[in-house]
Write a protein that binds this DNA or RNA. Sequence first.
RNA 1: GCCGCUGUAGCUCAGUCGGUAGAGCAGAGGACUGAAAAUCCUCGUGUCAUCAGUUCGAUUCUGAUCGGCGGCA
Length: 309
Amino acid sequence: MNKIPVIVIFGPTAVGKTEFLLNFSRISEIVNLDSLQVYKYMDIGTAAPEREITDRIKHHLTGFLTPDREFGAGEFVREGDRLCSEIYERGRIPLVSGGNAFFLMNFIYGLPESPESSPEIREKIQIRLETEGPESLRRELEKVDPVSFNRISENDHYRITRALEVFHASGRPLSSFKVPDRPREKYDFLLIGLIRDREELYSRINRRVEIMFENGLVDEYRKLRKMGYGEADPGMSGIGYSEFLLMERTGCFTISDIKELIKQDSRKYAKRQITFFKKLENVIWESPENSDSILDKVRSFLSKYNFNI
RNA sequence: GCCGCUGUAGCUCAGUCGGUAGAGCAGAGGACUGAAAAUCCUCGUGUCAUCAGUUCGAUUCUGAUCGGCGGCA
């Protein structure tokens, strides 16, 4: 079976992925790997690629969903598979790019066998969490899935909820489902991880948040609120929006506090992304400054498929 | 200039009735089984402002000096 070549360009927020993509404008189309850039009405806060970039290289999975809809790893893998096939059939090289390490891991290895997330069951468990408290849920998990019980930290209510959700949905413990441990055969991946010095990355993040405010992030948030989006909507949980919701809820921040908070949350996010990405194997790690060295590797990868940049 | 308060971790501060000190935040490292820009775990040595005095022993008490804040002139 012929494999589909897929170039993946990933890295922490603000490392400089978007600009780098223009190198591929002749041969590729982009599959967006940022979980919040999938949403509409959130261009500023999610640093969505600008018009001049999307005009030059086709982007998929950006700005197509309203913020009240969930878009998780399952959706990403499904859509990503569909798009990669289509792009390759069109005679182009699929280029997956973004910062979501969890989506990427699921895309490379394939989804685990465990059932997909069920918002209805999850909500019931969340209500129990509020009424009965976390201890009650933990005792149930201990009985029903001791392996997960031991693996999940007692304060990680998010994962405790998920483990119980799987049990209630399938009647089987989460830990009994196989999780894939090798990359899927249907793809030939070229993994390029963009990275910079921590200090430099952080100052790029800070600068970018300043620019978001200059470009009207506050107005963008107000518009979203006017459209009726709020705490409960997945899109609004993102950095750059949840901080404003916090301000509304507590009333104890100024706009300039919020700006600093957004910078800080973005820095922490970048750190978490880096930690996660480091786990991936066969990654070419390189600063975006060294584009020649990266492009050499891309050329030798593409030569197998008679492509050139 | 005088009076009062104050000086402890990068920041905000606690504390030691005299036996060389600890929280929050920041920061660092890590986890990640279909919500993931989510969620969670681990990590605290610093001339306790400086100099002198008392003391077996001072970051702690006393004095002076130098900062800061407030009040009065």
